[in-house]
Each structure stands twice: as C-alpha cells, then as structure tokens.
Amino acid sequence: MAFLFDVSSGNILLDADFKPLVGGIEMSNLLDPSKGSASISAFAGSLGYIPPEYAYTMQVTAPGNVYNYSAVLLEILTTRLPVDEAFGEGIYLVKWVHSAPARGETPEQILDARLSTVSFAWRKEMLSALKA
C-alpha cells in the first residue's frame, strides 16, 4: 500500500537550528500500487500543491507526493506563494516556473535574488535544484 500525502509549506516547521521538521501531514487517500491509481469522491489537498491529475480527474497516483514536494521546493527557491493572482487564472507556481522560458525568463530570473545572491555556492545549488 502507498499513501498520497497533503504536503505543503504550512506543514514544515523549523527548529532552533533551522532544521526542517515535517508535521501535521494529512493522508489524502490510500492507494493500491497494484492498481496504479485510485478514484476518490471528495476533493482533498492544499491548493497549489495538488498534482494536476488529482485536481482535474480526481485520480490520485503515488507520484503525487513528488509533485507536492516539488511545489514546496519551488516555493522556497522563488519565495512566491503556490497560488498568486499575478500568475494568471488557473496558473499555479509549478506551471508558472515551467512556463518561464515562454515568457522569456531565465532560471536565474525566477529565483529569489535575496537568496541566490548570498553566495555563488548558494546560487549554484538553487539552480541545480530548479533544473532537476
């Protein structure tokens, strides 16, 4: 059995040494990997962190956990909220980042400049995470 978790930045806390602690994560649905996916009849999850296949078809898959994590990581790298009116209607952070080249923006331009300019090493790591 596999679980689809509702991961969002609101579930990640920092301790006194700024080490992340994950807490308060809800299981959105129980999946049977032998079937590949499962249908649900109720909407669950945090807007901006929900995998597209879940939001549009109500079909959940195990890779949804990766999508949740990716949205949190992009939120950290860009310091933008997962849902922002500036992205346009129906566009969330993940899609906004993926569409940067079409808007003529480079990966360096979508990173938070306050973080990426701290050091070359930080910038290199941030770009590496963004391109992964």
Rank of each mutant, 00 (worst) to 15 (best):
T117R: 15
V60M: 15
G45L: 07
L81T: 10
S28H: 03
W96G: 02
L81K: 15
V22E: 02
K35D: 04
I110P: 01
K19H: 13
V97K: 06
V66W: 09
M27G: 07
V118I: 15
L127P: 01
M58E: 02
R123V: 05
D32A: 07
T106F: 04
G90V: 09
K95Y: 10
D17S: 14
A121I: 08
M126F: 06
L13F: 13
V83F: 08
A62D: 09
P52R: 04
R123I: 03
S128G: 09
S34H: 13
N11G: 02
P33G: 06
W122F: 14
F87W: 08
E53F: 02
L47F: 14
S41K: 13
V118A: 11
L13A: 06
N68C: 15
L77P: 00
L4A: 12
E89Y: 07
F3A: 12
A129V: 01
V83L: 11
F120K: 12
R103H: 08
S8E: 03
I50L: 13
S41R: 11
G24P: 07
A129G: 01
M1W: 09
M126Q: 06
E105P: 00
L31M: 12
A16I: 09
T61R: 15
V94Y: 03
G88L: 13
S99G: 04
F87K: 06
V97D: 01
T61G: 06
A38Q: 06
G10Q: 13
K35W: 08
N29T: 15
V94R: 04
L115I: 13
T78R: 03
R80W: 00
T106L: 14
S119Y: 09
V94P: 03
F87Q: 08
A113P: 06
T79C: 10
F18N: 14
E108C: 01
L31K: 01
V66Y: 08
S37I: 00
P63N: 08
F18Y: 15
V66P: 00
P63T: 05
A44H: 11
K124V: 05
S99V: 01
S9W: 13
S70L: 10
G88N: 10
D112C: 14
Y49P: 02
F5R: 08
L13V: 02
D84G: 03
D112V: 07
F5G: 05
S46N: 11
S46L: 04
A102H: 10
F43D: 12
M58P: 00
F120E: 15
D112P: 04
M126L: 07
M1F: 09
S99A: 11
